[in-house]
Design a binder for these strands. Structure first.
Lengths: 192, 192
DNA sequence: TTTGGCATGTAATCCGTTACATGATTAG
DNA sequence: CTAATCATGTAACGGATTACATGCCAAA
């Protein structure tokens, strides 16, 4: 049973470093707190939990809530150590793969209106993100005002805000550019 | 020999829709033109080329340049059709996975200076990107001033510019926030 | 009683990178 | 001569998603 250095492992370890949790809890937590820059599926969580326990980095707790099947894990000192060692390593850059940009790059062979629809959809998605970030930030600042980790949480949120804001601006610029293209192609192909 | 709907397939098909090319050429092209938002390795390119040829979406050409081993592929009408069909489909959002944000989120258990170094490195990387985008844009506008695809190329470049610019700003903001944290922790833990 | 959320897990599969293997050609 | 670049390909491996399978409990 090998366990590599995948960052999934550390996302799970990091979550358990905040509070003991079951696989299900971890999934919930990831979605609600770091969901805008990270994701985990049950398909990785449960196998990794087993391996982490096997390696002594986490430990299953006894307290079974209610009688419902439920395994809660807590991080061990050894796990904390490995987590800290990983945290200080230089982060690897994520490989860039943007499907919308790939499509736009080759979009000259498709109707301009299709590209505009794609960009418009992207814009809406990013605006939804922006609204969510604002809500989350307000919630955090009220409920965890003095929490020692708050500054770090706000930092990752702010990343999302900057990024989404920039993409919305790009969408607007791009929609204008595409509209221009559309006008030109209509002049040529349209009614004489 | 199955061939799924992975976007790699269409990145390759798209490249061949611009001009016939060998696997080696494709790799070069991807790096130099869409490298800031896409990447392909030889390990996928060559097997996919075989499968695309097998499916009749591309065709190997005869002209062997120089005598050096070299297989140049050209897209077929059938390939063009499949490409166009894919281009107009709604692009899927890329799953978010940012290792640097993951590390920052849990960074409270590490020295502030480490986080600052990580953010500083990120800032430099994005500034290098910005410089590259400017160079590429100037090159494109000079050498391909009237090329019909130019507007689309500029659109993808502009995305990179907006995004990198926003991240640099976030880096500055974050470095300031971290410096503040550092001052506070020094007051508490430092010399009385 | 039935729906939805809680809860865990496995198997199939896909997709892609890395490392390896090989060799020709060309520029210095 | 020799280093770099051109050029193609495979095998091993790893990492992650998806779909599937299962079943309890609480609330409507």
């Amino acid at each position: 049973m090998r366990l590599g250095d995948s960052s999934s492992k550390f996302a799970i370890l990091g979550t358990l470093s905040l509070h003991p949790a079951s696989g299900y809890d971890i999934k919930q937590f990831v979605e609600s707190s770091i969901g805008h820059f990270w994701n985990e599926s049950y398909g990785s969580i449960y196998p990794i939990l087993k391996k982490l326990a096997h390696a002594g980095l986490i430990q299953p707790e006894k307290g079974s809530r209610g009688g419902r099947e439920r395994v809660v894990y807590a991080i061990t000192p050894k796990g904390e150590k490995e987590l800290r060692e990983w945290l200080v390593l230089p982060p690897r850059a994520e490989p860039a793969r943007s499907e919308i940009l790939l499509k736009l790059f080759f979009a000259q062979r498709t109707p301009v209106s299709t590209s505009m629809a794609q960009v418009q959809e992207k814009k809406l998605a990013e605006e939804r993100n922006l609204a969510a970030y604002t809500r989350i930030r307000e919630g955090l600042e009220q409920e965890h005002a003095r929490h020692p980790e708050l500054p770090y949480w706000l930092i990752t949120l702010s990343y999302g805000r900057h990024r989404s804001q920039a993409i919305v601006e790009w969408c607007n610029e791009t929609l204008a550019a595409l509209a221009k293209l559309q006008k030109i192609s209509k002049q040529k192909g349209g009614p004489k």
